[in-house]
Simulated scan of single mutants.
Amino acid sequence: MIRGLYTSALGMLATQTQSEVIGDNIANVRTPGYKEELASNRAFDSILTDRIDSGNVGSEVTPIGSMVTGVSVDRGSVSNAQGALQKTDLKTDLALTSPGYFVVKTPQGERYTRNGHFKLNANGMLQTPDGYAVQGQKGSIGPLSPDFSVTADGTVNDKGQVVDRLRIVDIPETALTREGQSLYSSSQAVQGSANPQVLQGSIEASNVDLSGQMVQMMTVMKAYEANQKVIQTQDEMLSKAVNDVGKI
């Protein structure tokens, strides 16, 4: 019975974590390049259980099997599904229509993003709205004039000259760690994309399925309430076992 209390409580904590993930996804449904965060349940590691037999000579331990004490939530992986393309006609807006991520330079090192809503700073350097320099094969891209162009393979041209080529890398979704809304770091070495496809004048919208997230939220809420009722029932049974059975 006590084990049941712990199991149900862990179930409530798991559904709470799931609701937080869903809430983050819904809050970023309009964030360009945002990738839906995924959360999956997993059982805690099973533990071996023994029966202790007490006797006059000593005590013997008899293995009786294993048990699982509850469930937890793994979060952090993201969905790499393509988001819808939104046409803006801005030269600085770039969208990836193929797998991969843009590379930007931050004070913490290189980070990766699908959010191609870029801008030119006062010196003509291509950067994110937060001021992180967009990286090319030669380093930070620029200076550029307002009339620069980007071809489908990521080559940046300005005033009839090739300036650089965008660095676009492939990263498995399991290796991504979210930092903020649309920046990611990678837990493993990244590799350049073999065949990147870039569309200038458009941005990729969030790939969050709002209706699907609402359905998941309802499912999680029902699971939370179910675990809550189980705890209440077990608490009442435990109370009767202590207070009523003991009087017999």
Rank of each mutant, 00 (worst) to 15 (best):
M1Q: 07
M1C: 09
R3A: 05
L5D: 05
Y6R: 07
Y6C: 06
S8C: 15
A14H: 00
T15S: 03
Q16P: 02
T17R: 02
S19Y: 09
E20Y: 03
G23S: 05
N25D: 10
I26Q: 00
R30E: 15
T31A: 11
T31Q: 09
K35I: 01
L38T: 01
S46A: 12
I47P: 07
R51W: 13
R51N: 13
I52Q: 06
S54C: 07
G55C: 11
G58T: 09
G58H: 10
E60T: 15
I64K: 11
I64Y: 10
I64N: 13
G65T: 10
V68E: 14
V68S: 15
T69N: 12
V73I: 05
V73Y: 00
R75C: 00
G76K: 00
V78A: 00
A81W: 12
L85R: 02
T88Q: 05
L90P: 13
K91P: 14
L94M: 07
A95T: 10
L96S: 03
G100Q: 06
V103W: 04
V103P: 09
V103G: 12
Q108W: 08
G109S: 07
Y112G: 05
T113W: 11
H117Y: 15
L120T: 06
N121I: 05
N121R: 00
N121T: 03
G124W: 10
G124F: 13
M125W: 02
L126C: 13
Q127E: 01
D130P: 01
Y132P: 01
A133N: 07
G136P: 03
G139L: 08
I141V: 14
P146I: 11
F148P: 02
V150C: 12
T151L: 12
T151N: 14
D153L: 02
V156P: 00
K159A: 07
D164H: 01
V169G: 05
T174K: 14
Q181I: 03
Y184S: 08
Y184W: 09
S187E: 09
V190E: 06
Q191G: 10
Q191D: 09
G192R: 06
A194P: 10
Q197I: 04
Q197F: 02
V198C: 10
Q200A: 15
S202L: 14
S202G: 14
E204Y: 08
N207G: 09
D209W: 15
S211I: 15
G212I: 08
Q213R: 04
Q216W: 01
M221C: 03
A226I: 08
N227I: 09
K229P: 08
M237G: 12
L238I: 08
L238Y: 02
L238S: 05
N243L: 13
V245W: 04
K247T: 11
K247I: 07
